[in-house]
């Protein structure tokens, strides 16, 4: 019988008390890829269904922000951006920030926000923050296209071979953002007021990242402080790639950044896994 055959092929699942150091199970995530796909699709559909303008919102968001920031910081306050038109300067950093903040914010909320299915069915909980990444990639793609349109209109910043760096930079961005998101996601389970703290942290973090200003604006002896923020050098690299400004990122820097980002991701994943076991009990 079909049922007999399948059961015999399967290796038994052993359920034991949770330990604090469990690594994510990638094979299991692959097994549940169907469910993950539907969850991602659901999240995307829900985003459009609840707004009047629907899909247009994904395009409008970076556009509107660009207009407002350009008007205030570019025209009114005249923030010097080293000869680059403000809106281009802004967007080149904003695409990165948007991805990071979206992943961190939504990953943190993902466990608590999906509690109703967590307590009634089993699936690898890591799927929840990871589906956040899929969503954010879509937003990134749209913002990226909007940005390319403006680059084309401006004409001074053609697409060059530098863009080959994109996969590497994207990998660093994804691992780092997801890792931080997982850490906050884990924190959310234990401390419910993390949500408020996170909004505040992200707001401050954005101003500490050179998105609406170049690092060169800071007095020389203080510039190094900005580099404690991992996003600073990442944004620098993106700007080099898009606009050809600044120094060529060294291979050593890229390798180190990617490795650190991956380590951060695993730390986040382990913390998250430790907390995911508690969530069905706490909530």
């Amino acid at each position: 019988m079909n049922v007999e055959k399948r059961a015999a092929e399967m290796s038994p699942v052993v359920i034991t008390p949770p330990s604090s150091l469990e690594l994510p199970n990638f094979r299991e995530l692959w097994e549940y890829r169907g469910l993950i796909f539907f969850m991602v699709r659901r999240d995307i559909k829900l985003r459009f269904q609840q707004t009047v303008i629907g899909f247009l919102w994904i395009v409008l968001q970076p556009l509107l922000l660009m207009l407002i920031f350009s008007a205030i910081f570019g025209i009114m306050m005249r923030v010097p951006t080293n000869g680059i038109p403000f809106h281009i300067f802004f967007l080149s950093g904003f695409v990165v920030w948007q991805f990071f903040s979206q992943v961190v914010n939504n990953s943190a909320l993902s466990l608590v926000g999906n509690i109703h299915v967590i307590v009634k069915s089993y699936f690898p909980r890591l799927a929840l923050p990871l589906s956040t990444v899929a969503n954010a990639l879509i937003d990134f793609a749209v913002s990226f296209i909007v940005f390319l349109v403006f680059l084309l209109i401006d004409g001074s910043y053609p697409i060059t071979g530098r863009y080959l760096l994109l996969p590497v930079l994207l990998a660093i961005t994804i691992f780092f953002s997801s890792g931080v998101g997982l850490l906050f996601g884990a924190l959310m389970v234990v401390f419910r007021d993390t949500k408020n703290l996170l909004s505040f942290i992200l707001m401050i973090w954005m101003y500490l990242t050179p998105i609406i200003y170049p690092v060169s604006l800071a007095p020389e002896q203080y510039r190094f402080l900005f580099y404690f923020n991992p996003l600073t050098s990442l944004v620098d690299s993106y700007r080099w790639m898009f606009l050809g400004v600044g120094d060529l990122p060294k291979v050593s820097y890229l390798v180190i950044s990617l490795s650190v980002a991956i380590v951060i991701w695993f730390c986040g994943a382990i913390a998250f896994k430790a907390m995911e076991n508690k969530i069905a009990d706490i909530l």
Partner: peptide, 29 residues
């Protein structure tokens, strides 16, 4: 969905759990 504090459970078959009506239903869809 939840894990034991002590002891061990071994499951040799594929599990389908029906713990509520309409798990995962989203009314907007």
């Amino acid at each position: 969905i939840t894990r034991p504090s002590r002891g061990k459970i071994t499951i040799y078959e594929r599990v389908n759990a029906l713990l509520e009506v309409g798990t995962g239903f989203n009314t907007e869809l």
